[in-house]
Structures are given as C-alpha cells and as structure tokens.
Design a protein around this nucleic acid. Sequence first.
RNA 1: UGGGGAGUAGCCAAGUUGGUUAAGGCACUGGAUUUUGAUUCCAGCAUGCGAAGGUUCGAAUCCUUCCUCCCCAGCCA
Length: 580
Amino acid sequence: MKDKTAPSSSNFIKSIIDNDCNAETFKERRWRGKPGTLSEQQNANIDSAKIRTRFPPEPNGYLHIGHAKSICLNFGLAKEYGGVCHLRFDDTNPSTEESEYVDSIRDSVKWLGFDWGSHEYFSSDYFDQLYKFAVSLITAGFAYVDSLNAEEMREYRGTLTDPGKNSPFRTRSTEENLALFQEMRDGKHTDGIHVLRLKIDMASPNINLRDPVAYRIKHAAHHRTGHAWPIYPSYDFTHGISDALENISHSICTLEFEDHRPLYDWLNQQLFELGFLQEPLPQQIEFARLNLSHVVLSKRKLIQLVKEKHVDGWDDPRMPTLVGARRRGYPAQGLHLFTDRIGVSKADSWIDYSILEDCMRETLNESSLRKVAVLNPIKLIIENFEIDHTEICHAPNHPQKKELGSRDVTLSRELWIEREDFSEDPPKGYFRLFVGNTVRLRYGYVVKCTGFETDERGLVKTVFCECFSDSKSGTDGADNYKVKGNIHWVDAHTSIKADVILYDRLFSAEHPGKDGDFINDLNPKSKTIIEVQVESSTAEAKTGDCFQFERHGYFTADPSSTAQNLVFNRTVTLRDRWKK
RNA sequence: UGGGGAGUAGCCAAGUUGGUUAAGGCACUGGAUUUUGAUUCCAGCAUGCGAAGGUUCGAAUCCUUCCUCCCCAGCCA
C-alpha cells in the first residue's frame, strides 16, 4: 500500500512561502483576533498564524471541482505552514448573490474536511471601511467621480493597442468629488449616472490601470446589508483591501487576475502610505485553474444545465458541483488525492476526467465494504441440488482487511447471475460460463455448465450447471480446483430488488462546446436506471453509505433510498482490462 | 498589432543562484501474487527540456532571434 499521507511535492507557491518564512517576512504582523486597519491592529499581539490564506468564493453559484482545487490549496497550505485560512464571501455584487449559495458553500467546504474556525468573513463586512478609504483616496487625489456613461467610458478607455484618454471629469475638484460621492452614497442618483474611479494612468499598456472603477451605483437589495447601500465597491477595489484588513499573507487566485496584480499592489500601497494599512502588504499569487475534460465548470453553463433541466438539479450526481460529487459517492478524500495528484502550476493544462475517476477508485477501494449485486440477472440452476436445498456461505467484507469480518450469504438451488457471465458462443479468452466450462461461484462452489435455455426471442433465460460438492470455499477441498473464472451471484429467494442508477459522463465530447453549443455535446446516455438483485444484507444501507458491488464498481445509497425501495448510484466502475 | 503569462515523456509536474546518470505521480508495457479480468507487488518507460543560434570546461537553467498556446478593452468576479 502506497503512503498517501506523504507530503505533496513542491510547487512554485510553496517556494514563495518558504522564502517568506526563511526571511521572516511576516514575523512582525499584529493581529487583534479579527480584521482591522493599521490603527486597529498596531497595538495587538504578534499574529500567531505563520501565514494567512483565504478562500474567497462569490456566493452566486454552487462550488464545483475547480473550487475544490483552490480550497485544498488554500486550506492545505495554511495547515502545512502553521497558518490559518479564512473563508471569505466576496459579496460585492448584490444583483447576483444570494444567501442560499452561502449556506451551500459553507456545507461544501466542511464536507471537504476543512474548518475555518471563527474566520468567516464577508466583503460586505468591510463596506463602511471601504467607503472611508474611498473618501480618503479622493481627498488624497487618487480617485474621482466620473459621469461618463458606460458607452463613453468604453470609448475613452482605448483599445488593446491604443492608449485611452482622460475623461473630462478627471480634473474635478476634491470638493466636488467628495460632494458627488456623498450624493451617490445617499442614493441621490440613479444607476449608471456616476462611478468612482481610481486615478492611475489612462495611457497604461495594462488596461486595468486605466482608471478602474472603484464604486458603482446599484439600487439593489444586498443579501446581508439590505438597502443600506445604493453604491457597491468593485472587485478590484474590494479584494486587495479585504486581504490587507485580514492580514492575508498570500492571496492565491487564478491566472486571469495576473493583469490585476499591479492594481492590487497600487491600491494597497497608496493606503499603506496614507497610514491605513500595516506592512507587510499581502501578495497576490496566481495559479492555473482546473480544466477537466468532458466537463463544464463555468458558472453560466452550470446554471444553464440546471435551469433548462438537462440535469435534475445542482446535486445531480452527473454535475461537477461538490454537492453533485457527494451524491455521486465521490469521497472528499478522493478529491484531496486528486488535487495532490494534479499539482499546482501556472501552465494552462487539461486534466483527463479518468484521472479524477482513478482517484475515486483508489480511495474507495480502501474504504468500501464489499457486497454482491447482479445488475442484469439471468437464472442459474444447480441441477444436482435438491429443490429446497439451502446453505450458508461466508463472504469477507473486504479482501485486504480481514478485521472487517465477513457476512453470511444464502446459497440455494436457484441463483441469479450476470447475463454477461454466460456466453453461448464464447469469444477467445473468455473464461466465464459456457457449456462445458468450469467456474467458481464466488465464496461458494465450483460448478460446471451443462446447458442453457432461451426464451421465445432467443435470449438466454436460464443456465444449468452441476456443482462439485467437495469444492466449497473455505473447505479443504476448495484448493483442489483451479479455475480461472470466478463469478458472483445472489440467491434467487433471499436476494432483494433494488434500483441502480448507472451514471456516465455528462458530456460525450472531450471539450464540450468546442464545436458549437455545449448543449449539443450532452451525452444522451449519461443516466440509466435499472432494476437489479442485491444480496439481502444490503437492505440496511443508509444514505451516503458506499459499497463495492464486486466486479462492478462502487455504489452509494442515494438520499431517496429507503429500506422498501433501495436506490444506489453508481459512483465509478472498477477498472476492467477485459472489457472490449 | 499593446500588455501580461505559459511551453520539460501520451497526461500532470519537480528542477530555473549553470555542475556528476533530467525527481515523482498517472497512463502504458512486461512479470509475480490474487476466489473481484479488481487490488497489491516488482521491473521497464525523455542522449532529451517549444525551435534555432550563441556564451561556457560544462546549459532545461545565462544571452539572442523565432514559433505555439492562454488571459486582458464589464459600472462581473
């Protein structure tokens, strides 16, 4: 068994943190136990957290596997370095954000096994502070109220190759700016009439530095602050400041924010020089977001799948959301393994979906109890058993973990076996049941196939065999029989019916949407419901229980499952080198 | 065409203050074990680091030129 607790290999972010730790960069930070400005922090004790990271979701959608990479990274780093990771809801846009999402995000992060303790924050916690900073920036000449409309602003911004030009409102007096900003804050203007912009450089080759918007007017109810604010700060204005107030040492985000880093640094630097923030300032570090084949991870597309009912909701087991993965039976540990395995870098790479599935197999193999289920049953009749013959066989609950014990399963004359474990016309290399061949009924006897019967359509209905009475598993005679084939079965009388939902990837295309609408790439066979026969002990399964149905794969009891009507989701199949 | 990034095996990814035979994982291929065609174990797997030049005793690491891919012109994040 490989050591899965070994520390993950080095990456460029760890190198940065190592350097910072060696240089004792963050040694002098003060922390009063909660976020605050320089004046609020400076008399507090030294921050005991070696580093501080944060996971900053916007509460406007459900978390997905891509977020899991970021969550594991941020919380994992904090843990590894003796630091703390904050959970911060980045809620600066009330028109798209809802508390429904806040709850779900909290649940998903917890489910992944992380604990942010008391460090749950909201960007909206800082609205007052942010506003004060904005006023100070106006006073210092670093911000102004612009009254260009959206279209004019776009024109003035220039293009990728042409510099922008200054807005005619750029030279407004401090007094006028202050007065207008106050009016904006007081709700005296309608949406879009004015914005507050940072005064940086309209000719910068970096478009983000061409006087970015810091505040916009938005008469919308916020999920936490209600109608208290008619203006809301932008991401760029909010994020770096929030990081600084929270003493974040390493602000890890995705590659598309690289161009924003000069702005991030500029803003915090101004506020530091104005005496509002303590040094050292947080540093933004960017990594490549996860790209997974056969999957879409954009919020817009995920929402579309739900709204247009291509799936049965956010927690549909085919969804790449964390709630979906959980219902599918993907263990949180499997996601940890996955993020360790794919690594972290700045190279834009695609991970094949099979890597994820392998991680699930690997962790599920360790943890899942074994059960027997016949997914596509046909009858097997042991002809040399009496009609009412019944006996007990012992099946281990885990082949590598004897300590997990075994269970009793009933064997009688009539069994259900898998349709594909019998062949009328066996292909080369087939070593299951065919007339004349010998196989072992797993945990039971070795039998020899003597014949079969078909129904009116010519489909095999019943297979007949003869049992070698001295071959029972666990008895001395068992070893005298060497057979290659080993098939599973359930007793026809004591086994129970269950529903199994077979899931396959949601999209058949490797890169959904690459050749047109991603909806066209939906896999029509991504969900199949079948009725199966499971061994009687499975009746006790509770929601979330994971089993290996031997020779098939891993399955988990769906929330809709009851003792009267068992429902299992197929999490992932077993590897199968024979499958044609 | 401006700016910002990235190119190391089929796929990820270490290494980048120049120094002996270019980590590791996944996949793959052999072999062993196996009452899951599963698991596990062992072995193999880049004369090569996007390309071409150059500097050097020595280059994935330094210099030059070039090529490919990704991101940026929301009052989204």
